[in-house]
């Protein structure tokens, strides 16, 4: 479903050229739970931006769901992001002073979906993200970090995306809340067959995934099936 072919990303700043990604090729199939791991400065963020259609590669081809993304303009990319990708960020990025439901609805607002349908789908997504319904009408800035991240996950789910991209989703959370968030991802993958790409620099977090891709200095150095997968099972 995701196919990267010889992707290069080079940043030019005056005379200085920085090579962020060197000839990366990889494939991710539908229903996979992949962790992309690497230390900071390894190019994993750049890779995530390209996978998330926030940026286009300098050269190479990127097929998402059969469509070539690499040559699209900003507005076409925006539409792809709206329809096929759900983002979960490290710092949640919820709209403050806006209630939970409205935050989750936001991608559907830009998709031009009617208010009634938006509500339905937002509530479904919140249930899927295990967000308790008594907080639906609270302002997002009144919630705890773990709750905020679950709102963000619900927002990523609401447009029924092909892939969910999570960029250090536990970075701002303590270990225990982080585990709850990771459990939510695992649940979405195991029980609902979602494709999830987790970007992290911590090996122990990557171990929750099925498959681990390691990058260093812009190069893909390892890609293997995770045999010692951590499974959270509180129940």
């Amino acid at each position: 479903m995701i196919e990267l072919k010889n992707i290069w990303k080079i940043y030019k700043n005056d005379d200085l050229e920085t090579v962020a990604l060197k000839n990366i090729s990889l494939e991710i199939k539908e229903g996979e739970f992949v962790a992309i791991m690497g230390p900071s400065g390894s190019g994993k963020s750049t890779l995530m931006h390209i996978l998330g259609c926030l940026d286009t590669p300098t050269s190479g081809k990127y097929f998402l769901d059969g469509e070539d993304i690499s040559k699209m303009n900003d507005d076409e990319l925006a539409e792809i992001r709206n329809k096929k990708i759900g983002f979960v960020f490290q710092s949640f990025n919820l709209l403050p002073k806006t209630n939970v439901l409205r935050n989750v609805e936001l991608p559907l607002v830009y998709a031009g979906i009617s208010p009634k349908k938006r509500q339905e789908r937002a509530k479904e997504a919140l249930n899927l993200a295990a967000f308790p319904n008594k907080f639906w009408y609270h302002f997002s800035n009144q919630l705890s970090g773990g709750m905020m991240q679950r709102v963000a996950i619900a927002r990523a789910l609401v447009n029924d995306p092909k892939i969910i991209l999570a960029d250090e989703p536990t970075g701002n959370l303590d270990t225990k809340t982080g585990e709850i968030v990771l459990e939510t991802f695992q649940n979405l993958h195991d029980k609902h067959g979602r494709t999830i790409i987790l970007i992290t620099h911590e090996p122990y977090i990557a171990e929750y995934a099925q498959r681990i891709i390691k990058i260093k200095d812009g190069e893909l150095i390892d890609d293997f099936k995770n045999n010692n997968r951590r499974i959270i099972n509180n129940k």
């Binding site: 998330g52 926030l54 900003d74 507005d75 925006a78 539409e79 992001r81 709206n82 329809k83 983002f87 960020f89 710092s91 990025n93 709209l95 936001l106 991608p107 830009y110 998709a111 927002r155 447009n159």
Partner: peptide, 16 residues
């Protein structure tokens, strides 16, 4: 700025 970034990330076009 971050809000604008988020809106764009989840599919807002320049015109929006």
């Amino acid at each position: 700025t971050r809000e604008i970034g988020l809106r764009k990330a989840i599919g807002a076009k320049e015109r929006d």
